[in-house]
Design a protein around this nucleic acid. Structure first.
Lengths: 124, 124
DNA sequence: CTGGAACCTGACGTTGACGTCAGAGGCAAG
DNA sequence: CTTGCCTCTGACGTCAACGTCAGGTTCCAG
């Protein structure tokens, strides 16, 4: 019935390490059904789940924050607190984007400042 | 002549810790002149320098990368390598901005998905 | 001249998301 | 049945940018 895969294949499909998947489970972010011998088995949606987790990590959320918020997303239910939390994280990301944009502009300034070959500057 | 400050005041002005400043020096990012007794003294431009360093850190550059690039910026001179490096970092930041933007949109989806009080959903 | 900040140099502690290794078991192929 | 790959559970290692503590020196206000 359910097409299930073992941890190695899920790791491949989601482009993460096996270790990472076990770590996610340890942090309560990813569930698995276990075979009688104890091996983890995952169904299809697990790939999306893992990618969502990765996105949130790369957005700077911590395991704990994700663990707090994912159940609420799963249930498609929110409390005033969870909404505030989500909004707060979004705002933090917006701020970080602004900061990064500023940093990038700085870098561009540095590039311009150090001259380009076209401008005939520098290291001749 | 030059108005110099000690490490504590520079730390305050640049809004970083004293430890951080010593760390920057250790990493070759920030120079200081020393009094006969060994105390660090900094001139005016140090504040800007520190803030630039902070910007680059928050943009995800490592100490080593910054150490590689700062001298080139100081000298306002670039080699093909340093330009490539700067451009590569800028591209990396651009990519990260894109990723963050995507993550933020995901978060907004999550917020919408879990419902809002206005929509009469959820936690009633 | 004296007491308390501020400074110095090591050097070990911290945190997060894993990497990596050890030792033991499980599973399909031949 | 055995070879070889996959998986399991600990548990220690890593890396970066500092925090923090110890033990000693220096500076300045009173």
């Amino acid at each position: 019935m359910g097409v299930t895969v073992r941890i190695g294949e899920l790791a491949q499909r989601a482009s993460v390490s096996v270790r990472a998947l076990r770590y996610y489970e340890e942090q309560g972010l990813l569930l698995s059904s276990r075979s009688p011998s104890g091996q983890r088995h995952y169904a299809e949606p697990a790939v999306d789940r893992v990618q969502l987790i990765q996105h949130l990590y790369s957005a700077g959320l911590t395991s704990k924050t994700i663990a707090d918020l994912l159940p609420c997303v799963d249930a498609k239910v929110s409390t005033p607190e969870s909404r505030a939390r989500l909004a707060a994280e979004r705002d933090r990301i917006d701020a970080q984007i602004a900061e990064l944009t500023q940093a990038r502009d700085k870098l561009n300034d540095m590039i311009a400042l150090t001259g380009t070959p076209a401008s005939g500057c520098a290291y001749v």
